[in-house]
Design a protein around this nucleic acid. Sequence first.
DNA 1: CTGTTAGCGCGTTCAC
DNA 2: GTGAACGCGCTAACAG
Lengths: 371, 371
Amino acid sequence: MASAAPAGSRRRGLGRPTIADVAALAGVGAITVSRALRSPELVSETLRRQIDKAVRDLAYVPDLNARALASKRTDVLGVLVPSLSHTVFTDVLRGVYDGVDGTKLQVQVGNTRYDPHEEERLVASFLRHKPAAMIVSGVDQTPAARAMLENAGCPVVQIMDVTDDPIQLCIGFRHDEAGRLMTEHLIAQGYRRIAFISGWMSIRSTGRLRGYRKALADAGLTEPCLTHSLSREELTRLAAMSEPGVPPFLEFSRPSLGREMFRRALASAPDLDAVFCNNDSLALGVLFECLAQGIDVPRDMGVAGFNDLDFTDACSPSLSSVRTHRYRNGYAAVTAVRQLMDGSYEGPNVVDLGVEIAARRSTQRCVGDVA
Amino acid sequence: MASAAPAGSRRRGLGRPTIADVAALAGVGAITVSRALRSPELVSETLRRQIDKAVRDLAYVPDLNARALASKRTDVLGVLVPSLSHTVFTDVLRGVYDGVDGTKLQVQVGNTRYDPHEEERLVASFLRHKPAAMIVSGVDQTPAARAMLENAGCPVVQIMDVTDDPIQLCIGFRHDEAGRLMTEHLIAQGYRRIAFISGWMSIRSTGRLRGYRKALADAGLTEPCLTHSLSREELTRLAAMSEPGVPPFLEFSRPSLGREMFRRALASAPDLDAVFCNNDSLALGVLFECLAQGIDVPRDMGVAGFNDLDFTDACSPSLSSVRTHRYRNGYAAVTAVRQLMDGSYEGPNVVDLGVEIAARRSTQRCVGDVA
DNA sequence: CTGTTAGCGCGTTCAC
DNA sequence: GTGAACGCGCTAACAG
């Protein structure tokens, strides 16, 4: 018998047909089946036809684990993001998915949950599967994770931030510059007492804060009321209030938190005339709080968000924000990965996608300055 | 040499240490290393110590593909969702991730993009990796996908909907009932001319619509203006307007679309007194449109959403919605999976998590009826 | 263009 | 408690 699972065998497969079964049925060698499946052009028309039939008749499905073991490679594109609850990263993922369309690449998403150690574990875990390439978010991997990625032997692209010292290639934008640009926009619109509001500071948020401070300093202004982080007790309280397992960083972008933090900012700096929010959800809350308090936006209070989510233009007044190219970032990362894989990549190893100020009504104090 | 990669070999590994290298260094058999790694309690203290040292010295990392091939199993929990852009499913995923915490299970997410054929492909693809279990969204898999899942030989849980005929086990809630409950709530609040607004109808949306219609019929009311779907041309136009690759269903939940569809509904039924939106984003748009038009909510117009996203309670007026237990659904699915894996599952094979009406100000026409 | 041979790295089986 | 042998299903290398 040519069957792969002789009855007397000490170990049997799951009963699923193997490549040997197909080969036997088609009357060819196993390797020919293998080739017919992966590079049909290398196999003669006749044999290919017989093989295809046998494959169909047996409902043969190649075992990817065996393939990976034998060939030492897979078509898995590992993508690590810090959160799946933030539009920011799901937008990136859409770009990634679109980028791999029509490709052999299989996307596999890992959620680091903003935990560097979880990221490290995931890097190790993904690398064990010998991925075709890796895309990781941010540029602040732990030394261990970085070392693993450097030795991964596959293309590695860092996204959503830039650094002078990428693991291999990084494509993203400068958060400090983004923060600076929006603050300068607010200043240009005549706002002077500008607060920065944030629930939780990721490494990237800190960059935006830096840019905000620089812009203020350059304009000779001071920070009226900087509420950039919640106390530990508040953090715990919020966590307790939420469904078990809801990570704090999600809570920290809630509109209701925006309302609360805006109230606080106003209490400690009653002469506030603008708020730069670390994300659009917080800004939405500020907008509603102004509405509830009868504060006129943009006349008495400028409100700006970050990320330019889909609701910014539907607000009333529409909400100014910082447009980051998240979809494009994901797409570009995959494009680069593919080029790195076939050796055709020729771009620089640091790519800055830039950001744009989406100036809308919520910061339009100077008439005629905004579309 | 006992090394796994003799210099003269025709095929070499990647140079990475193998279990044989560890065994050689520790002076034991390969199998003992294998055991020490997976079931330390079966190996004597002394050997375990030597092995651990060797593992560390060589920075040995087990090859998961080889392990999977030899053992015919993995610790991968495959999770298929129709979208990563909707909070709905990312909430589910949080539940899933929290559920596997402290477990050997490795979550692997697949994005079907609301395409049954893509789902079918993904099912096939995931199953080839011999996952420990699968969690799939909805109950409307293609016959082929269903057949594959039935023969997968691993626990399979369907979520976010219920059916009398699950593949194996399904945990979710009834969308028709959800639609009915919210409509009844609106009726109880004195609204009579209630429109249902939706940009795009998924299978689950259709269920909600069914419930809405039933509630109206039961109350002897008619549908004033049902704008439940966009024309094909509009669909194309919207797609063209958006960034390449932005799937229509995303566009279809935009607040700006809510504004637009509300204007239309109002145009064809000026006596409209309430709007039940298929999701909260649309409802947010309706809220802003009312604000812009000077329509008093809830007095002159009741506005209800669906899903109860995080911004509903921060709106002004706060937005009524249907609370679905997405996080809990993900968590429960994993719990069930784990029990199915060790044979301890004893629940029914259809679990209805139910929904709740989150009654807030935007539908509070009858004073005192809402908290 | 096709087949043969020899593994890929690990876990199962069975014996000690 | 430990180890030797064998095989999981597939593909790289080389020969024809």
